[in-house]
Amino acid sequence: MTTLRLNHQQHAFLQAVVDRDSELADIGELVRAAVRDAPAPSPLAFSPSTDPPARTVVEERILQPGTGKAFEVVAGRVVRIAQIEGHQCVDMNVFALGDRRERLHVGRTRGMQGLHPGPGDVLWSNAPWERPIIAIVGGTATTDTQFPFCSRLIYSAFFGVHDRTNCQEIQNEAQREYGLDLWDLHESLNLFMHTGTGPDGEAVIRSNRARPGDYIEFVALLDLLVVPNVCGDDLSNCSNYGLRPVRVTVEEGLPEDADRARAARDRAVVLGLPTPYEGRGALPLKRDRSYVAAFPHLPLRAADVEVEIDEARFARARNTDLYPGDDAAALRDITLSSAIERLGAFAGNE
């Protein structure tokens, strides 16, 4: 017997697929069919690992799956978001502490810095400010500016499931600590998301290649509220069909961090910026000290399934580059990938 490691919302999704497919009697049959039909995986390339510089830590938190946290990051400080177990996508939102109306503008960032901002790039704020607000100064993470946050809509429209962890509701709850409302939500920067181009030129999400210890570092160019959340998507290879914790650290910046941030800003505005907008009636952000986090759809409960599979076929199909020594994670990837294909085929024939 082999363990298919699931949480309760993944188990409910697989059962829903079985219920809609007359060829399947139970989840075990779905798993065996997935292993039988799975292609051999393609080899993957990984970026070389590096270690971050040693700095003075101001604040450090481990964010659990289904949660997020708002961090005050004053100008010149560094915020680092790092993998613990690997494979975990993170959504990151940013607001100006001095005026809640100024915030990260992913569309402007995409237009100015490209689809995948990295070290040496900056992130831009919305109009009428339209200025660099935070600089990427180091790390090994891939980023993406194309895909919107997952939400109740995405799971309802594409998977037929409801009331499950999603970035929209996680972000809403995390930013509530600073009095930000549902309508203050804006598009996030995707961290540790590996994207590419499909056969028809469309943007596609590839397997997540983040490994334990991979990280990305930012230097605040003004006083900011940085709000990362652990992406709630466990039905795609965005996070390789799993939900895992990540570490967020705020540190005092070093002189070399300031130099890198300045260089990134200067590179981005080499021909200059328009006259700075002088905000009228600024609305500063302030922490609600009575705030108690209440993230929806938690706790996530284990719902493992013991199944008999063809071990030889599984050995050929499992991705040893992504899941060295983790058969349960490899089997979950194969099974959920197949289940989603079945669901799509079923929907196309309705």
Rank of each mutant, 00 (worst) to 15 (best):
G114L: 09
A203I: 09
F149R: 11
R342S: 02
R280Q: 13
N7F: 07
G114Q: 10
Y277S: 10
R36S: 00
V73P: 09
I27T: 12
D266G: 04
R287V: 12
H8M: 11
L189R: 06
V161E: 14
D91N: 14
R131K: 11
G232A: 08
E85C: 04
A12K: 05
H11G: 01
D234R: 06
R110V: 01
L235D: 01
E173P: 02
S42A: 15
A258M: 07
R176K: 15
L153Q: 12
A293E: 14
M112T: 08
P53R: 05
V57I: 15
L97K: 14
T197S: 12
E202C: 05
A263V: 07
R265D: 00
L30G: 01
R211S: 10
D200H: 12
G111S: 13
D257L: 04
C89V: 10
R103G: 02
S22I: 08
E72M: 03
A96R: 13
G348T: 02
R131F: 00
G196I: 09
R313S: 09
C150G: 07
N126M: 02
I309R: 01
L322K: 02
G198R: 07
V17P: 02
Q9Y: 11
I81V: 15
A220K: 04
Y277L: 08
R287I: 05
H105S: 15
P212F: 12
G196Q: 10
L180E: 00
G272D: 06
A34Y: 02
A312S: 10
A16C: 00
D257T: 05
T320I: 10
V58T: 13
E60Y: 04
D223R: 05
I133A: 06
T143A: 09
G281F: 10
E187L: 11
M112K: 14
G348F: 02
V226L: 06
W129S: 12
V307P: 07
R77S: 15
D99M: 03
P132C: 05
V246C: 10
